[in-house]
Each structure stands twice: as C-alpha cells, then as structure tokens.
Design a protein around this nucleic acid. Structure first.
Lengths: 220, 220
DNA sequence: CTATAATGTGACCACCAGGTCATATGACCC
DNA sequence: GGGTCATATGACCTGGTGGTCACATTATAG
C-alpha cells in the first residue's frame, strides 16, 4: 500500500501519478511497466516515487483498491430496473452495468484486467483474495437461484460459478477489445447492437444452466 | 523462421535448444523471456543463437509450427469413436482429445497459450493467421451443425464460434492450471472425475446452443 | 528569525537486456 | 600439406532497468 506521504498529496498531483500508472500498466502490463516512464509521465522525480510507493507492484495494488471503490460507487448510483427479477435477470443487469462502468473507465479496467488475466495466473497468486471476493458473490447468487428453483439443484455450484466467471470475463474482454476501436466507447456499449450481442451471449449461458431436469438428468 | 544453419543441426542439439526455449517461454512469456537464459540452458553460445534465429520472437514462431505439426500428428493417430456422431459429439471428442494432447505436451502448450492469451491480445496481432485458422474450423463445424438441423438456423454463426472458442480456451486453461498441480497430468486428465467435469462444462454450452426455436425466438 | 521536520530531487549504482563481431575451430576438397 | 567455407564462440557494446542516497527545498513550530 502507498505510504502516508502519498496520501497527503494534493489531489491533482495524486491523480497525475495514478493516471500515468494506469496508462503504463494498460500498455505494458505489470512486469514490463517502467517506473522511469511512470515517473516522467507524471512529472515527479524518481526519488519521490519511492517515497510514495514500495515499488510498482505497490502502485498496482493501490489501483486495485481504486477500481473496487469506483465500481462500488458506480453501482450504488444505479438500481436494478425492476424489483421482482429472477437471478439471471439480475446477473444480466450486473453484467451490463459492469460493461457501462468499463466503458467509463476503459484504461483503468484494461490495465487491471491485462495484468490479472495476462500475468496474474502465473504470479504467485498475489491477487487471490480479490478474485476470491467476486467468486464468493457469484456463489451466493447461484445458490440463491437454486433456492428459487431457477436452477436445477443437481447443478454443480462450483461449475456454475466458473461458467459465470468465464462469461463475465469473455464479455469484458470482448467489450474492451472491440470497444477500444470505437471513437465513443460509451455510446457503442449502449447501442442496441452491442446490447443485443451481450444478451445473446448471456442467454446461451442462461439456457445452458437453466434447462435441467429433463436434460441434465440424463448425464449426471 | 529459423535459418538454415539451425535446421542442419543434429537433432539432439536442436532439441536442447527448443526445449530450453519452451521452458523459458512457459515460465516468462515472450516479452520477459531472456535469450541469455535460453542460451545458457541449451548449452550453446550467444553467437550461435543469433546464427540460428533472428531473435526470440523468431524462436517462438518456430514453436508455433512445432505445436501445429505435433498436434496434427497426434490427432491423426486417434479416430472419433463413432462414425455417426452429431456435431456436438464431435466437438466434445475434439476437446477431449485436445486435452489429452495438452497433457502430453504440457510445457509446450503452456508456453504458447501463455503468450497467445497473455500477450497476443496486445501484440500487433502477429498471430492473427494462426488464430484465424482455428476460427475457420469452428465456423465450418457450426455451419455443418446448422445444416444437420442440430442448431437453430437463426443462431448467429459468429456468436456460436465465439462461444465455442471461449469454452475451448476456458477448459484448456482450467486443465493447465489444475493439471500442473498433479503428479501425473495425463492420468489426471483421463480420470473419470476430470472427464466428467469437462463433460458438464460442454453440456452446458451445448444446451445453450441447442435449445433454440422456442427460446431463441423470444428474444431475437 | 531560527531550528527542525517533511518532502523533493536527479545523479548515480549495479545489473541485465538484446545484439554484434573479430576471431577460433574444424570439416571437406584439391 | 594448403585453402575454403560453414559453424562456434564469448568478450564487448549500448541502453534501459529498479533502486539508493546525499543534498536541496519547503513547511511548520517556537
């Protein structure tokens, strides 16, 4: 975590630094990020950098908390469109709101997902706890869905969680890759075409998980 | 591509080099791989390395062809268990045979998938053609499935391809991550537990794609 | 105004990267 | 033997890395 010195900094200076770091990580990942470049792009001196942070990994960890905080706030500002919504509907809403968030903070999301997926798998599982938190959320959701009778109880919970994670990540990657080519990501994400694509992906997942009794029974 | 000098080398020396390279890429990816380490681990001199290859990316490209060749041979040695098999059954067989192959060449597969997924996305799409080839294969499969009436014609082919790719990659990643923890990967992959897990994942995908007319119609 | 504490700075360090090249080795032919 | 050509070698180069530290600057307190 950043040292006290950093947190005492005027907001603008702090923002310069984290923005430079975000751009750096988004472009080069963690391993190949250069502290020298971060330093020169944020207009501070090398010495100051090491007065603020332990090292670049420390900066990255801080970005993780920034993302988590921003995302929380973003979601707090939105509300599910309808109160009586089934679990899949809620999941769909979550994914879509998540996509909106992603398009509002594309560099930050890109930086973090690049590191988490690209390098995180091979890192000594430093980010295990962050991952674990989202997994827990999904597990709760799927258990809720089973309790509601929306998903067959014989469905393996871990499997379902993995499936939902896979899709969440796949869609996120898709949006980031395709969206980066657009002039206005936000507008593109909100377009009916894009929304329809997301819907299709999610429906395929949903039907796979939902259609159960008759079909699942045959095999498990 | 490697220079002639390399191809003239005695097999053992060649193998030392590509094995060292595989281990290096599997552990460090492409960007962070060190030619110095490859050189010292394969027992050749720095100068020789550059007499064999342009640079480390050249080595990696060569590994791609190695993988492609080995995989072809491996699949040629196997045969689908039954001739009258539907497309999904064939896909399932393909995935499983692929997993067996992966567990037979874990380092090679790990090296390449690490680079392709971890860094490939952000590379200037150097590997686009390799990717394109597998995409084409899947597209043909799904079109076949539509022609056979196994999949609803209203299904978006590109979407289906993306779904199949996503699953193929997710399962592959799962096997590599979990399997690397095992003493005997091959045995673990062939175990009924693992096979069942793979089956479950694929059935969820299959039902998602298969259940159509009634369900898809509602939304598209 | 002075003394003390906090913050800022960039030259500098050791290290390792990818890549080159003059030279050495040895196989083959006349 | 001498001559030629492919192959092998590692010292060496430039340039960037993460990280340090003695010193300069600024803020705070008495």
């Amino acid at each position: 975590m950043p040292k006290r010195t950093f947190l005492n900094l005027p907001e603008e200076k702090r923002n310069n630094i984290i923005n430079a770091a975000i751009e750096e990580f988004a472009e080069y990942g963690l391993e190949n990020a250069s502290t020298n470049r971060i330093v020169s792009n944020s207009g501070i001196s090398k010495g100051s950098f090491y007065q603020y942070f332990e090292d670049k990994q420390d900066v990255f960890m801080y970005l993780l908390t920034v993302l988590e905080r921003e995302k929380m706030e973003y979601f707090k500002g939105k509300h599910p469109p309808s109160a009586n919504m089934d679990t899949f509907g809620y999941f769909r809403w979550m994914i879509k709101t998540g996509m909106e968030f992603n398009s509002a903070y594309p560099s930050l999301v890109q930086a973090i997902s690049r590191v988490m997926f690209g390098e995180g798998l091979y890192y000594g599982s430093k980010f295990a706890d962050v991952r674990e938190r989202t997994t827990q959320g999904l597990r709760a959701m799927i258990q809720q869905a089973i309790a509601n009778g929306e998903v067959d109880p014989s469905v393996d919970v871990d499997l379902a969680v993995m499936i939902m994670e896979t899709w969440s990540n796949a869609i996120s990657a898709y949006i980031l890759n395709e969206g980066m080519k657009q002039k206005d990501i936000m507008k593109w994400v909100r377009s009916t075409e894009t929304q329809e694509r997301i819907d299709k992906m999610l429906y395929v997942m949903e039907y796979g998980l939902r259609k159960t009794e008759s079909e699942f029974g045959k095999h498990f």
